[in-house]
Design a protein around this nucleic acid. Structure first.
Lengths: 203, 203
DNA sequence: CACTCATGTTATCGCTGTAAACATTGCCGA
DNA sequence: TCGGCAATGTTTACAGCGATAACATGAGTG
């Protein structure tokens, strides 16, 4: 009779036995919980509870917890791509665009700490360096073009690779360090580091 | 009668009721398990099992699991400091020393993925940028001096701060990206990025 | 209108971290 | 030398977790 069993029994609002679109409701609820709790603190049962459904209903839509979290990561990836693309376009491209994309990357990380961490830890490698022309990473592709246009004309592909990786390392490292409170989350600091990054890209 | 209860009952070797130095045995075992398993996959009970002691015995030495993991982080921090100091000294300081410390940082991360991740996520901020002259971070202090000597003579303290943070971001970002398989773990790549980092430190 | 099968539920398992009560023993003062 | 206490171990217990299996419901199609 414990209230924390698999059953939830709330089911306050009128929705019958079938939910309608449980899958996206679970994703929605998961993203919501990730805003406050850290990743391993979010339980399947809690997500199900929030949606108002039994814990095991989740397994009709995801093979296991990792799969659900993976879906959250997908959602986050799309959002990040959108933000980066928007930042790039708003800034007008070129070096300013490069900086803007970097800032969008860091900002996304700071705005979605748990999700970002999970995306990086869990997700399949995007293989940013080899830049597959694949479907879903338009932002990365944009970035690639930008880096290509910023590096000196005579730069070898290998040099471009290094420049790209260094730039990625800078924004990623900065984001992680701030996420982990190793460095104060200071807007001016972000700008300064990113500025010094793009200044040095034509090494 | 389950074999997975709190009790372990192995206790094969002759050690009586009292262990002798259970605390460091637990730390030792914890570090061992972290080599193969990821952090959240290591359970208190498993560590205790490995040491041959009941699960709850742990609580005589650590208030909770986080505290034990914290002790592992401390150990890792000391080791990292040692390695960086050694790298610095072996290389003879200067720019070579700076690179060597960066490489040691990345290498430590790659050699101790779980521990490194935990150290960064869990640990109290070292506040690398403000560089407390504190006792235990001799390596960081060394690094600070090195950065100071590498930046142009006319650089302001703020500029040095930025240069230091960018350098840290590069090695940290590179380490994390490789740890997360976002980038191939390639020795030559590490060298190239770090080389381009120290080349650009006098920006 | 009946059947089917996708989608929900309940019951249960073994694992986890942790609290509480009990057991053992090293050590220190009388 | 002995008595007892504090430190350090053990057993027992509990709630929450992810996951499986068996069962219930009902939407949509023939």
């Amino acid at each position: 009779m414990s209230v924390n069993d698999n059953s939830v029994n709330i089911k306050n609002d009128k929705r019958g036995y079938h939910h309608g679109d449980l899958r996206s409701a679970l994703v929605q609820a998961g993203l919501e919980l990730l805003k406050t709790r850290s990743a391993e603190e979010v339980s399947l049962r809690e997500i199900a509870r929030l949606v108002g459904v039994s814990a095991t209903a989740v397994y009709r839509h995801f093979p296991d917890k990792a799969a659900l979290l993976g879906a959250l990561c997908d959602e986050g990836g799309r959002e990040l791509g959108r933000l980066q693309l928007e930042a790039m376009q708003r800034s007008g491209g070129g070096r300013a665009g490069f900086d803007a994309v970097g800032r969008a990357y860091v900002r996304f990380a700071l705005d979605n700490p748990t999700l970002f961490r999970m995306m990086m830890t869990t997700r399949q490698a995007v293989d940013f360096l080899d830049m597959p022309e694949g479907r879903d990473n338009s932002a990365l592709q944009l970035l690639r073009d930008n880096i290509a246009s910023l590096t000196p004309a005579g730069a070898s592909p290998e040099q471009r690779r290094i420049a790209a990786l260094r730039a990625w390392s800078i924004v990623h490292g900065l984001a992680m360090l701030m996420l982990d409170n190793q460095v104060p989350t200071d807007e001016a600091l972000i700008d300064a580091v990113i500025d010094s990054m793009s200044a040095g890209i034509a090494t």
